[in-house]
Amino acid sequence: MTTSLTAPAAPARQQLPRAHTRARTRRSTAGRRERRTGLAMASPALILLLLFLVIPVLLAFGLSFTNARLISPNPPRFVGLDNFVRAFTADPVFLRSTLNTFVFAAVVVPVQAALGLALAVLVNQKVRGVTAFRVIFFVPVVTSIVVVSILWKFMYQSDGLINSFIDTVTFGAWQGTAWLNNPSTALGAIIVLSIWQAVGFHMLIWLSGLQTIPEELYEAARMDGASPWQQFTNVTWPGLRSTMVFVLVTITIAALGLFVQVDVMTQGGPVNSTTTLVYHAVRKGYREQETGYGATISLIFFVIVLVIALVQRYLTRDED
């Protein structure tokens, strides 16, 4: 990436010795102006990124070793590793949040990636009206997750739409529960609506990957008598490698950051069955104003995201 960007400048520099001296001085003032303009035009964005991305990241590191509070007359005091010790030994809700976050991601990542790919294959067919289906499958993505959460909370009620549907299709043989009030079903209920909302996005990413695979490869495979499944495993799948890395990394990061659905639908309950790392960080660091401890949880969350993203990159790296 970086090399491809700097490369085109080289020929211009090589021409320099051939130009006569007057031109060279003009060029070097022009060069100086170019450097200055470059920095000036980049700086508004860079300063904003520094203020609202780099500094907050550093603060997450710094504050996690303090007892800082959001509103407090006393300045933050250095407390060493106390916050980390507290998280892992004295805060069962933190451990439960970590577990829930992992369970959520472990289900959502493979299921959403696979469903997204299945949808993409389906809407990649050259049949009439297929664009309309692409648009329909994408509609939940443009619907706010807050709206989606409220809507599904209504549908998940014990006398709600989901249970009346179950009642109808099983002729009353199977009774649904109040999905979000039951500790054993609440997280599963959130998983279903999360996939419903986001899968259309990854369908489109997969689709753009599918469309880079040349049609001739499929024709050749068909000539060799390959079945649709063989075409998929031998032509489609190998062609989707870089798309797969992108899809897995983006779903993983989004899934680990689960917050809105929990905040709107369950507030972490019942009995902490849906609390997540980000939800717990906000609860401690903002609602209970323990900024220091909230920063610690945020930092642990960040390290987990970083490690998983790097491991995924490594496992799906190009062999060559």
Binding site: L49, F52, L53, V54, P56, V57, L59, A60, L63, A68, L70, I253, L256, G257, F259, V278, A281, V282, G285, Y286, T291, G294, A295, I297, S298, L299, F301, F302, V305, L306, A309
Partner: peptide, 15 residues
């Protein structure tokens, strides 16, 4: 910086 999810910095950023 693309790897930094907003959720990581939300709490320190309020402060």
């Amino acid at each position: 910086t693309l790897i930094v999810p907003f959720e990581t910095i939300a709490v320190p950023m309020v402060y």
